[in-house]
Each structure stands twice: as structure tokens, then as C-alpha cells.
Design a protein around this nucleic acid. Structure first.
Lengths: 151, 151
DNA sequence: ATACATGTAACTTCATGTGTTACATTTAAT
DNA sequence: ATTAAATGTAACACATGAAGTTACATGTAT
């Protein structure tokens, strides 16, 4: 089953934008992801509608951040992406008449709901600034002689 | 994205088997699910390999339970089904060289791992007997004049 | 011998994110 | 003005894996 990796892609792209002066083109961002610029525009368009990024058309155009990294949570991005289904598992029939199946659905729905709530709560506590800080730490570890600016 | 509803299907089928004297054919079980008998055999075959059910071939054959309802947990069934992916969300690239993407993956992996652990832990606490009891309760509520046998 | 059942291989279908092509539009540089 | 470079967007093909279907071999009771 294909997995929805748009949240992962969007995080990756936004962090590169944060680490880059000036505009970045869809083409440059697509190369970061190893994909096609149209895929980037398609997903970034949703973020633009939400005001997290801005785009400029024409020669010299591209994308730039329009919000603070510390104000963007994974949960917000998940919502902007349309709150796609979290689970690859699910009920066979969402509105069964069969009482047996109603019991099955009730048990599974309850477990999924509790679990999804935990995931979204956790997504709500993680900001892009957190990821950027983690990146800075990894960067410093890889180049210990330049640790200073990262700490 | 297609959801994997085999766990739901298997629970539904096993509970019907528990509530039915003697063997049940793939055809009868398929009608409970609203699907094809081949789909039933395909999935039930995994449960047979695990010893949870037994099948008898030929005229008069069919399926029967081979384990106690109270000994079968949702987690065990999930494992028997091959531990399919729980999430429809995932990383874009599981082994990135890019440090930015490594930070993204670390954050997402951690959230997914914690969440999946919770779900599986919960699956481990729910037995088929629990679902059968819930079904009995629903059954009694719908036919209050026959409550006695369900309590 | 026949009917009824499982066992299983070999497809097709389905739903979506992803990938690609094509082209319109906008903007800056020459 | 022309050209080059960029976004915006429509339209289509591809990938994945459960689910669905068809076909047929095998086994078993009547």
C-alpha cells in the first residue's frame, strides 16, 4: 500500500527553505526530495493557501517561508494537508446492521481513536523549530570543529 | 488509499463461528461479510496455520474454532495476518543521507513508534471473548425480554 | 457417480499518492 | 519586443497491495 509521505516531504522542504537565504524554486526543492517540481508545487500550494509560505511567479520567482518555524506544528501541517487517514487498517464496513460487526467496529474504533488522538497530540507539540534545532545538533556532531555556532 | 480490513473481517467471522453450532462453510462466512468465499479461505488459511481454526474438506466440510475465545487477542490476530503496516503515513525516504531529512525521519519515526506501541498494547488486552461479551450485551439490549441468558 | 466442500493459482479491480507531460500565465532581463 | 525563467494547473500514467473474481484441482460424504 502506498504511504502518504506528504507530511515528511513538506517538513523536509520547509527546513531547507529555513536554511537558505532568499527564494527557492520548485525545481531546487524537487531536487532535495528527489522528485518532480510539479509535485512540489501541488503540495506547497496547500501551504500557501494556509499562509505558511508565499510564492512569487515569473523570472527570479520561487518560494519563501511566511511564518515562524516555532509557530508551525506537525499537527497544523497534517491539517493543512487535509487530515489524511492516519491508519492503513480499518473496519470493513463502517455502518453495519449486524450486531456482531457493530461490536467489532466499536472495539477497533475505540482503539484507533485513542491511538490517533495520541499521535495528533504529539504532532501538536513538535514545531519546525524543534526539527531545525535537531538538524543543527546533527550538523554540529558531524563537523565538531564548527560546533560553536550550533550551540 | 485502500485500507486493510482483514483484522475486522477475521474478528467478525470468528465471532459468528463462536455463535454457531458445528462447521461453517466459506460460503456462509462470505455471506456474513458480503464478499467472496475465496477471500474467506485466503485469510482463514492464515488462522489455520496458526492453529486458531481448523478446516475440513469435502462434502459436509467447513470451518470451526480450534482455540478459546478468551485466549485470542487482537494483537495475536494482527501478527498472524503478517503484521501489516499500521499507518497510512510514512517517511518519504527511510535511509536518507540528507541530515535535514534524518531529523524529519527521527521525529516522525519516534511519534509513529510510540503510537504503534500503544495500539498494539491495546490490541493485546482485547480478546475475542471481550467482543463476544459486548455482542451479547448489544443483543440483550435489542431484545430486552430475553436479557436473562446474556447476563 | 455425484454433489459439495476446501485449496490454490492467476488474474482483474480499486483507491490514492506520486510521477510526468504539456501548456498557459507571469515576471525580469536583454 | 523578445526571450528566458518561474509558478499554476489540467490531464494522464504509474505503483501498491488488499479485495474481488474465475477457474480448476483435490478431497469427502451420500
Amino acid at each position: 500500500m502506498y504511504r502518504d509521505s506528504r507530511l515528511s516531504s513538506v517538513l523536509h522542504v520547509l527546513l531547507h527553505m529555513a536554511d537558505h537565504e532568499g527564494l527557492m524554486t520548485s525545481d531546487a526543492l524537487a531536487k532535495c526530495l528527489g522528485t518532480n517540481p510539479v509535485v512540489v508545487r501541488r503540495t506547497m500550494g496547500l501551504l500557501r493557501e494556509a499562509g505558511l509560505v508565499a510564492s512569487e511567479r515569473g523570472h527570479g520567482g520561487g518560494w519563501r517561508l511566511a511564518a515562524d518555524l516555532s509557530a508551525i506544528t506537525l499537527r497544523q501541517l497534517h491539517e493543512i494537508l487535509g487530515e489524511p487517514a492516519v491508519f492503513a487498517l480499518g473496519n470493513r464496513n463502517e455502518t453495519p446492521e449486524c450486531l456482531v460487526e457493530q461490536s467489532v467496529n466499536a472495539a477497533l474504533d475505540s482503539a484507533f481513536a485513542e491511538t490517533e488522538a495520541l499521535l495528533l497530540e504529539r504532532f501538536g507539540t513538535i514545531t519546525l523549530a524543534d526539527l531545525a534545532a535537531d538538524f543543527a545538533r546533527r550538523h554540529a556532531e558531524r563537523r565538531p570543529e564548527r560546533t560553536a555556532h550550533a550551540v
